[in-house]
Simulated scan of single mutants.
Amino acid sequence: MLTLNAINQYYGGSHILNNINLSIDAGALVCLLGRNGVGKTTLMRSIMGMVALKSGDINFAGQDLSKASTEQRARAGIGFVPQGREIFPLLTVEENLKLALAGRRDKVRKIPAQIYDLFPVLQEMRYRRGGDLSGGQQQQLAIGRALVLDPKILLLDEPTEGIQPNIVVEIGEVLRRLNQELGLAVLLVEQKLPFARQVADHFVIMERGEIQATGAMGTLDDALIGQYLTV
């Protein structure tokens, strides 16, 4: 479904992504792991077109998106929940969700009922400003906003960062439900290993801008954790 071929990215003189090759199959739930500063967020932003590729190709659902805008990638079916959530704090929950409708391929202009089914708190607080929500509620809003687009794949950059434990559990359950019941592919960046093990079926480990290991989540052993993930 999503294929990255020889992706390279630089910031100044630093080689941030070094010849990244990665494929995410339809229906996969993959966790991207690695210590801070190894290039995980840059890779996600590169997939979304927020930073232009220096070299390489991005193909999604049979389309070459290497030079497509962020908006074009969203319309193609890539949903993105950025690190830090980036909701509009002065707009209501409902207004935040409605803004995302402009990117739908089918021109639907009504918030899908599924969003409120997945996150009932958003319906309860739909007239409250985004900035007045708790961190966990804001993360649910950010995920809901991405789902409004009816994506084929959902990218999430550290969705549990700074979130209270009960909301972390809810987010994990929602991701598994979306994946198992609807077949939505998911690629998430995560630092919490227990959450990654609970949610994802496969892992990808990055170190110094390169992919060092991939596999089924059950094969993520102590040796790999010690070499690439332990701080």
Rank of each mutant, 00 (worst) to 15 (best):
E95R: 03
D64P: 10
A74H: 10
R73E: 09
I87D: 01
I78G: 09
T92Q: 07
A68S: 14
Q83E: 04
P89V: 10
D64W: 06
G77F: 11
A68K: 14
R73Y: 10
G77Y: 03
N96Q: 04
Q63A: 13
F80R: 01
L90I: 02
T70C: 15
E95T: 11
G84E: 03
T92V: 03
S69K: 14
A74G: 15
T92H: 09
Q72L: 14
G77Q: 11
I78A: 10
E94T: 01
L90K: 01
K67E: 12
E94S: 08
P89A: 06
L91K: 04
F80T: 05
P82C: 00
L90F: 11
Q63K: 15
N96W: 02
L65K: 12
I87S: 07
L90P: 01
V81K: 09
P89C: 03
L97A: 09
T92I: 06
Q63D: 11
K67M: 14
E94Q: 05
N96G: 08
G62Q: 04
R85V: 03
Q72S: 15
K67P: 07
G79C: 00
L65V: 12
R73W: 06
G62I: 08
S69Y: 08
L97K: 03
T92M: 05
V81I: 02
L90T: 06
I87W: 07
T70F: 14
V81R: 10
Q63I: 09
R73K: 14
L91T: 01
F88H: 13
Q83R: 05
E94I: 08
L65A: 13
E71H: 15
A68L: 12
G84F: 00
Q83A: 07
L91D: 11
E86P: 04
L97E: 00
L90E: 10
Q72F: 14
E95C: 02
K67T: 11
L97N: 06
A68V: 05
E86A: 13
N96A: 07
D64N: 14
P82G: 03
R85P: 04
S69P: 13
